[in-house]
Amino acid sequence: MPPRLRLRPRALLIQRSPSQHSLRHGYASLATATTPAPPIEQTIKSVPPVLRYPPTQPPSHKPPEVRKSQLHRQYQSVLKASPLILIFQHNNIKAVEWMGIRRELTAALEKVDAEREKLGQELFADGIKLQVIQTGIFASALRVVEFFKPGESALDHAQYPTDPTTPTSAKVPNAQNTPDDETFAHGLSRKAHEAASNKKLKLELEPLLSGPLAIVAFPSVSPQHLKTVLSMLSPSPDFPAPRRKVNPGYHEPEIQAGLQKLMLLGARVEGKVFDQEGTRWVGGIEGGIDGLRAQLVHALQSVGGSLANALEGASKSLYFTVEGRRMDMEEKEKGDMKEE
């Protein structure tokens, strides 16, 4: 009968060999493992810093893919980019009416721009749009814009290449890819969220931000455009609506029905809040910023003139006094001469 255990000569060989090895070197810790030396390139140059998120998408506090985050970001950019924003309330305006109002508004603004183009002034008609907003998100975005003032950007913590031979000279922020990182200071960051959710701070515009709202944002404070928009959307004696003969499209029943439901509530001009009258006052500034500059120059010139007169007056009077004294003394001298 053959033996049950088969002899495996190779297995025996492997089992035996380590024991022989350990016998040869006493301790494993003293064994020298031969690792290959790093290539010479690695020892001379440092590893380039790595950006751990797409440069245009730093990690945000709320999930960035949802609609409200994107609207929040969009409203922040609108609020930061436009110094003049008109706020309207819209009461159940139909889609057809919106369409008509927007069409007439762009037509009127293009007319203004055509006039300005002749004078070589800046054109803004493309940037002025009537936009329906989500009120709550707009209010939150306004809080971030007003109350969150980031002192430093994420790039201030950037890694600088320590060696001129590093492969990149680009500044790469040394930040992790989580919203917990303190270095983020963009509008959707956690820091911005915390600054804006401070209940003690109150917005001046807070009472207006409820109900259905629409805004008209201007890329610059241009009273000429403001005048046109006011006369189209909320006509008043100061800003009369265009006549039927001039602009028959404006007097279509659909557009008029829509305009009845659109109310001007107020405006935000360079961070300050104006009511209806204040808005009309801004619209009534003649000639815009250039007109104001001209007024200022005129005022300063007249002040300068009077100042020069005043200064001249003093020197003149001094001259007269001295001259009078001289005459006086000369007469005296003459008198002395006669006496002699």
């Binding site: 009461n91 159940n92 139909k94 009472p207 009511d275």
Partner: peptide, 29 residues
Amino acid sequence: PFSPRSKSARLFLSLIPPGARANGLLIQS
């Protein structure tokens, strides 16, 4: 509109249906 108590006035306006003015409702605000 700048008084926080006038919210209900503004909401009242927003509750009026879109065709109400065409059907003879006179609204003055």
